[in-house]
Design a protein around this nucleic acid. Structure first.
Lengths: 335, 335
DNA sequence: CTCGTCGATGTAATCGATTGCATGGGTAGC
DNA sequence: GCTACCCATGCAATCGATTACATCGACGAG
């Protein structure tokens, strides 16, 4: 690998000049610049990142942690993150925390050691040490939350209006005439689930159907969706519609329905959440709340770059638009 | 951030000793070591990676490129990669190439600039510049192929026996009594698809059903699965069974079937490939070839570490076990 | 003609680690 | 008691960039 010294020698200038050509082109004379650039590409020179990093304390890397990369929802958000990051000249360090605190801490340590310029965390869990860091640095902390929104942390975030989205989904069911609705949530430790649940309750109140509401707490997995749907449908007065907080759980619910000999939407209507790319291909095609996953990814990067550029004022919470996509899994209940 | 100097001062030793305590603990006296370690954690010291990297030319990072991170198959492999890498003290740089050559080149450049110690690429495409590098360095090139296997490249790889797996899937259909089988492949530029296709042909010959074979070339997407299944089923003598080279395409095929008013498996049997975690939850649950995705990820890391440790002999091609999982989407054809 | 200014470039310190070589004290062998 | 060796440790060069400061020449003003 050619070093800056080689380039300097070959162009007959000092390393300082080479460095300037590459980072502050205006400060060097036209002729010299041309000579240096010629040397640069005749030698195929490109700066050693470690040396640059050591000197500048900038890594040009963004750490992204996610509770489960194999979850299609998250992987689509990550795709958006990667796209925006690489467009801005950053690369992405991936951390799959598997919901394990030790792994969260491990990645938190990477940020503290400044192995990355910033952190985007998807989900609601942030390692304690980073929570302290965020509290200490305020909005200057290079940490952004994606998909979720935790006011207590004081970091910027990008997400949809979960409460409103859930309200709309429920309103759709009530408008079709459903009165008894079963809801399968995500873990209630997550603000996102609580927001959606609040939306659910609000809709039920508006519809005067609070009595008919049955809530089960899931964890976003297919398995949980199947198990909890089975429970909800096995009660004395089973719901005529189910609302699952993820499409993955809705897939599980769909399988459970069939297992019980029920048809969707004839016997039970079903609404999912996320609009992962399989939702439209299920049988029946799933009515669901569509989230702009790529956009959420892009936006988290934008917010992080804002902090990194030092222009950050207060933490910002960006709400991106969602959309209730009505497909064939919802219908009026049979009287 | 505390530096090694701070630790040295605080422990009353030289930086050389501190460095040795941390990397070659045997070479320093017990008492000194204890003193240094005490200083290390009283100061909360951890080595600056940039400095270490500059000095040692090792980054402790693995670059992983993938054609589409939002594909559940790949994201599960990546999960395995991340797990094994982090267990070995490496972090993962993620590159989503989106099948675009420019992005492949961009990440190839990262490797050449030594921003990562090695590359694991999933899929069959390797940037030309890296292919040259692999050719030049032979098995010493820190490049490993996951999921696929390209003999021409001369790099190690981890994958299943695609030909055999495809043969088994087809044999299953023939054993059930199917004679006309439609196959939806992946892009034939990929050796993996060609291997599977070879397996398909071999099975057809064995069953004496070459005549009944109809092949369509897809691209692993749901959309392609739906479109091509529709085509295959709309011919004069439509197949009684379909074999798709990905579960995602099988999902599309399933939707297409329904669109044509056909039932699975009554009218058409269906076999997928991969066994992504939704396969069991489809209606009907999908018969498919299960790939050990996490294992593939682990194995690629193992192979790469082998190269990095310098003990690599020839390139190794590790074949991991697959398994045909028979669920409800396949049955004997109605006479 | 001289001085001040400015633009272009060079000099060298610096970032924080690793590591080959030097050093010095202790011990074993004779 | 002297030599030889070894073990633990320190000294200082080094990795490859960035950048504050110094230098130098040209040019315009007075």
């Amino acid at each position: 690998m050619a070093t800056i010294q080689d380039v300097a020698r070959s162009a007959g200038v000092s390393t300082a000049t080479v460095s300037r050509v590459l980072s502050a082109p205006g400060r060097v004379a036209e002729a010299t610049r041309a000579r240096v650039l010629a040397a640069v590409d005749s030698l195929g020179y490109s700066p050693n990142v470690a040396a640059k990093m050591l000197r500048t304390l900038r890594t040009q890397k963004i750490l992204v942690t996610v509770p489960d990369i194999s979850n299609p929802f998250f992987s689509q958000v990550i795709r958006g993150v990667e796209e925006a990051a690489s467009a801005a000249g950053y690369s992405v360090l991936l951390g799959d925390t598997r919901h394990e605190p030790e792994r969260e801490d491990q990645y938190a340590a990477m940020l503290r050691r400044k192995e990355a310029d910033g952190l985007i965390f998807l989900g609601h869990r942030l390692s304690d040490t980073l929570a302290e860091m965020a509290a200490a640095l305020g909005p200057g902390a290079p940490i952004v939350n994606g998909c979720e929104y935790s006011p207590a942390l004081g970091v910027s975030s990008a997400h949809i209006d979960n409460e409103k989205a859930a309200t709309e989904a429920m309103a759709h069911l009530y408008a079709l005439g459903h009165r008894r609705v079963g809801v399968v949530t995500g873990p209630l430790a997550s603000p996102l689930s609580r927001d959606r649940l609040a939306g659910v309750r609000a809709a039920a109140r508006t519809a005067g159907a609070v009595e008919g509401l049955a809530v089960a707490t899931g964890d976003f997995s297919v398995e949980a969706g199947a198990a909890l749907a089975r429970d909800l449908l096995s009660t004395a007065a089973p719901p005529s519609a189910l609302f699952c907080f993820s499409d993955e759980m809705a897939m599980g619910a769909l399988a459970a329905l069939r297992g019980l000999g029920l048809a969707c939407p004839r016997d039970v209507s079903l609404v999912g959440f996320d609009d992962i790319r399989f939702a439209a291909y299920l049988d029946p095609p799933l009515t669901t709340v569509s989230q702009p996953m790529a956009e959420i990814g892009h936006e988290t990067v934008r917010l992080l770059l804002e902090v990194l550029s030092g222009e950050a004022g207060a933490a910002r919470h960006v709400t991106l638009p969602h959309r209730l996509v009505i497909r064939a899994s919802t219908a009026a209940p049979v009287a």
